[in-house]
Amino acid sequence: MLTRDLAQEIVEETMRRLDRNINIMDENGSIIASGDAVRLDTYHEAAAEVIRTGQTLVISPDNQGLWRGANVGVNLPIMFQNRTVGVIGVTGAPEEILPYGELVKMTTEMMLKQNYLKLQTEWQQITMDIVVEELIRAENQNLQGALHRLDTLKMTMKPPYQLAVVYLPNRTSYSQSVLRMAESIMGNVRLVSSFLNVHTWVIVFYDRAEARVRRDLERLQDLLRNQGIEAQSGMSSSVCSFEDIAYAYQEACAALKLGLKQGRVITGYLEVETQALLSEVPTESKERFMGRHLPKLPEKLLVTLRVFLECNLNIARTAERLEIHRNSLVYRLTQVKELTGYDPQLFQDAISLQFLVWLKE
């Protein structure tokens, strides 16, 4: 825990302020950091005594000879989690430097704790990254490995499971700050998350109702927007099997892809499921279908058709949105029927025309 690099950083930072030589010794009494490079890796008997007793040891001219490798000064135990992990020695007249020594000891222990918490956070996030990767693999899904790592994190993921894929087009280096913001805005939401790459953030929600997940994502989007961070999200349907998390990931990706095309902030898979299924049709079949009908429809009729379908085949609402007379709308729909062979006002024909519009988009 008390590494040479950290010890040397503490020594250099402290000596700038105190203008006194500082030594830091490890649990074996060996000097691992010092303002005097000659003393590195030498044995410090006074430090070994401090390690043994856990008590501050003052070295004066009277007792200096008792401790090999010791200069006049004070040696204080460095405590971490109720254990002496090292010793910090400050050279100088004890009556002058003892108050400074206590301050240096407190600062050292604080830096040690901060470094430990940083390492713990990094370890936890690395473990979570691996868990997410193991869960979303379409092939070679490693469920046992994921469960083992979740156990080390003291986490138990209970169904239902739901995934969100968040796209951050302008992201540079704020992954950790985004994660912290997400935790703060969502409170005790049960989730694991990971950045797959510089722009893609995957969040796996568990033991959470679909409506609640949607609200959590909306709150996250609001937070990101307030921070000036542009983001769009795709959300999967809810699944109850651990194995199906990989399929949920594919759903979230499909929803995000369609949402990006349509300019949506949050796109749920169930909102675009038919369009997503359409994307699985072989490319040649889609091209033949579009090739037969799209060239026959001018842009004005395509726009009219799209709005008519968005209005659920409602003549009055469509005419209002397009700001045209009902008779003009009926005439345009008749033109669509004549050109394609499909009548937009008939449900079965409207389905084929809806596929045509989606493929065009």
Rank of each mutant, 00 (worst) to 15 (best):
R4P: 00
L6S: 04
A7G: 00
I10H: 00
R16E: 04
R16C: 03
R20H: 08
I24H: 00
I24Y: 03
D26A: 05
R39I: 15
R39L: 15
L40V: 15
D41E: 15
D41Q: 15
Y43C: 08
A47Q: 10
E49T: 14
I51L: 14
Q55H: 15
L57N: 04
P61W: 01
Q64H: 04
W67L: 11
A70E: 05
Q81V: 13
N82V: 12
R83Y: 08
G92H: 12
A93S: 09
I97N: 08
M106Q: 08
E109G: 09
M111D: 01
M111Y: 08
M111F: 10
L117V: 13
Q120S: 12
T121R: 14
T121V: 12
T127K: 06
D129E: 08
A138V: 11
N140P: 02
G145E: 00
G145V: 03
D151C: 09
Y161Q: 10
L163I: 15
A164Q: 10
V166Y: 05
Y167H: 14
Y167E: 09
S173H: 13
S175V: 12
V178F: 10
M181D: 15
M181P: 03
N188I: 12
R190E: 13
S193F: 02
N197E: 09
T200M: 07
V204R: 02
F205N: 06
Y206L: 06
R208N: 07
A209D: 08
A211Q: 08
R214G: 02
E218S: 08
R219D: 02
Q221M: 14
Q227R: 06
Q232T: 13
Q232K: 07
Q232F: 02
M235F: 05
F242Q: 06
E243V: 07
Y247V: 14
L260Q: 11
V265C: 04
I266D: 03
E273N: 08
E273C: 11
T274D: 14
Q275A: 14
L277C: 09
V281F: 07
T283F: 01
K286D: 02
H293I: 06
H293W: 00
L294C: 01
P295N: 06
P295D: 07
V303G: 03
N312K: 09
H325N: 08
R332Y: 11
L333E: 01
Q335M: 12
Q345P: 05
L346D: 10
Q348G: 09
S352V: 12
L353E: 06
F355C: 14
V357M: 14
